[in-house]
Nucleic acid binder design. Structure first.
Lengths: 145, 145
DNA sequence: GCAATATGGTCATGGTGCCTGGCTTTCAGG
DNA sequence: CCTGAAAGCCAGGCACCATGACCATATTGC
């Protein structure tokens, strides 16, 4: 809620957090897409939650904090991109398991690599100590509430 | 390091940034609404950019990085809530100045106070040094790219 | 066993947020 | 003047996500 035209140091802390997150978040998607795995930002909500052995739609939705319908659409798209498959759950015939394909696993791996690369970059900019300190401070903020 | 109860420290740094921002961002809106100024999260995009003397719709849109149409809708809502008024721009009869009302200025002030409160809370949690260190690290991240 | 109820998933519908395209009014330059 | 550009508005549309209704299957209580 402040004018955010000038340098970052003039922003309030919350705005700085937002900028940093936005900046780095876009780089994740760019990085993954750059390695040849087209996807939308929202798809990472699936990739972040999916289990290599498959997971149920409702479980994915719960973990990603959205409705099963919304997750269903994401899975539709990922199915069209051949990143996941819907398979019947042998233990419950109502359910379907969302299972990543080989291509999907490769995309997830690419995503992890991009994140590792970005974290390395953060360490380069802040130094090993700086990065560790940042993580420690953020962890304290998050475990506070 | 338990596998079944993942705490914030198990997240990658980018995810931690995102969580912290999301957490605090919601608290801003909650705080402002709690002081009796109903608004939606998107409205802060206007409040953050508006000038007490008024600003043009297209300027607001440019600064908030959206199309004039989208900004126009936000301004419609804020006009209904009586936070802003549309006045003719004396220097250009095509343009209209979006001017905050007294109520709008009070809402902006409330927003600033909420942010100050949250920053104070951050200082309580991290300590004066911790908060300053966090800001310094974030500023370095932001000025890097 | 068998109704009652809960759960997994889908479809239809609606709301929100934002976009593009087209329009009028006004401004500025030749 | 006249033409091109800019300010703002309206219509239409797409993306995203939610609610509600529905069907198939599981589970529970009697």
């Amino acid at each position: 809620m402040q004018a955010d035209a000038p340098g970052p140091q003039d922003l309030n802390t919350i705005a700085m957090l937002g900028r940093a997150y936005s900046l780095l978040g876009f780089r994740i998607v760019d990085g993954v897409v750059g390695t040849g795995f087209p996807q939308k930002p929202k798809h990472s909500a699936v990739f972040a939650q999916i289990d290599p052995d498959g997971a149920r739609l409702t479980d994915l939705a719960r973990r990603a904090n959205m409705t099963p319908q919304a997750m269903g659409e994401l899975v539709d798209e990922l199915e069209n991109l051949e990143y996941v498959e819907r398979k019947p759950d042998p233990s419950d015939r109502r359910a379907k398991l969302i299972v990543p394909t080989a291509k999907g696993l490769a995309a997830i791996e690419a995503g992890k690599q991009v994140i590792v690369g970005l974290e390395t970059r953060i360490t380069e900019v802040l130094g090993e100590d700086g990065h560790m300190t940042l993580r420690r401070l953020l962890a304290r903020l998050l475990s506070d509430d």
